[in-house]
């Protein structure tokens, strides 16, 4: 056979690419921490580190859910609004006397329902993901404001309110929640067939369909998981600030997308991981925290974040194209 005797130089497989990129991000994060510890004595204090972890945790969870959606080639703009809306729902349920576990479960179920609605809009109504999630973004804020009349609802349950402020084994509870989400998310994305289908749909939906993959169900799944993560963050936020307020978490969807993209997720789909967005979220949190400690004008924080997105994604693209 002619073809088997030919010796064509063959490209090295890029199997370790994900891990390598993750290590680069981790190095960047550690570098930031070292630099900030040297620059300001208050950075390395236990209180500040705990604070930093709390700040980053909620965006990190949102970013994981967002990443599932982006891998399929979609986008979920509604997550910030879902967070705000769910603080209201969980606050109302608790104040109405429901046990906390039931209030939390009901709120998570609501998240699932919102995600299914997104899937319905995309699959059955043929709406672009950008549009359907943009629509829920504005309407959920509106519904929340209607329900609260624009006021905040104070949560009358101390145990619930303390959860987000407390620590376990010296680590803030909120960060434990990140781990609680990240481990199943990792197994789901990289070791289950549904995770594999997210990638294949994002890479080529038609080829997946012709290979027997249920493309519609995969899309439902991605948006449901993203909304579920957002509802969970809503519960955590309500616990942290002790109130329900529909205008909370304004712009968090963009921070979640930014974290995901900094973490190496491709907005064209089919490329992404779980550790990437987590690292991305904590890099962003570190920049904000460091800038606060260094008394950098908060307007500058936004500019730095924007520049960082451009730089990281540009270098990531260079490496992907040119190896």
């Amino acid at each position: 056979m002619t073809t088997s005797t030919e010796t064509t130089p063959i490209e090295k497989p890029k199997r370790n690419y994900n891990i390598l990129f993750g290590l680069t991000l981790l190095a960047l994060l550690v570098l930031l921490w070292i630099a900030l510890s040297l620059a300001t004595p208050s950075f390395a204090s236990g209180i500040n580190i705990a604070n930093l972890l709390r700040q980053g945790s909620m965006i990190a969870i949102l970013a994981v859910g967002q990443t599932f959606v982006i891998i399929t080639g979609g986008i979920d703009l509604s997550v910030g609004a879902i967070v705000g809306f769910c603080t209201v729902i969980v606050a109302m349920l608790i104040n109405a006397g429901f046990p906390v576990w039931l209030a939390v479960l009901a709120t998570l179920a609501l998240g699932v329902a919102i995600g299914l609605f997104h899937g319905f809009g995309i699959v059955k109504m043929g709406l672009p993901p950008f549009i359907i999630t943009l629509a829920t973004l504005t309407s959920l804020r509106g519904i929340g404001l209607l329900m609260t009349n624009g006021n905040s609802i104070s949560i009358k349950n101390d145990a619930f309110s303390e959860f987000s402020r407390n620590s376990f084994l010296g680590v803030p509870n909120l960060f434990w929640m990140v781990i609680l989400v990240a481990i199943p998310a990792y197994i789901f994305l990289h070791h289950s067939r549904w995770g594999r289908y997210l990638f294949s749909v994002g890479s080529n939906a038609e080829a997946s369909r012709l290979s027997g993959v249920n493309v519609n169900r995969t899309i439902y799944l991605a948006y449901t998981l993203s909304a579920l993560c957002a509802a969970f963050v809503g519960v955590l936020l309500a616990s942290r600030i002790g109130i329900g307020n529909p205008t909370q978490a304004e712009g968090w969807e963009l921070q979640a997308i930014a974290s995901s993209v900094i973490g190496g997720t491709s907005l064209f789909g089919a490329i992404g991981s779980v550790h990437g967005p987590l690292l991305g979220a904590f890099i962003l949190a570190t920049i904000n925290n460091g800038a606060n400690l260094l008394n950098v004008n908060s307007f500058w924080q936004r500019i730095i974040t924007g520049a960082l997105i451009i730089v990281i994604v540009y270098f990531d693209g260079l490496r992907r194209r040119g190896k």
Binding site: I187, R193, Y197, F199, S200, S203, N204, A207, S208
Partner: peptide, 29 residues
């Protein structure tokens, strides 16, 4: 390009795409 392959996924994933159900126990591949 348009219907047959997921080009930016690995050779192995493409080869297994129709049979992931069969080679998965409950949840895990």
């Amino acid at each position: 390009r348009d219907q047959g392959l997921c080009l930016n996924l690995s050779v192995g994933t493409n080869l297994n795409l129709p049979i992931y159900k069969r080679i998965s126990s409950k949840l895990l591949i």
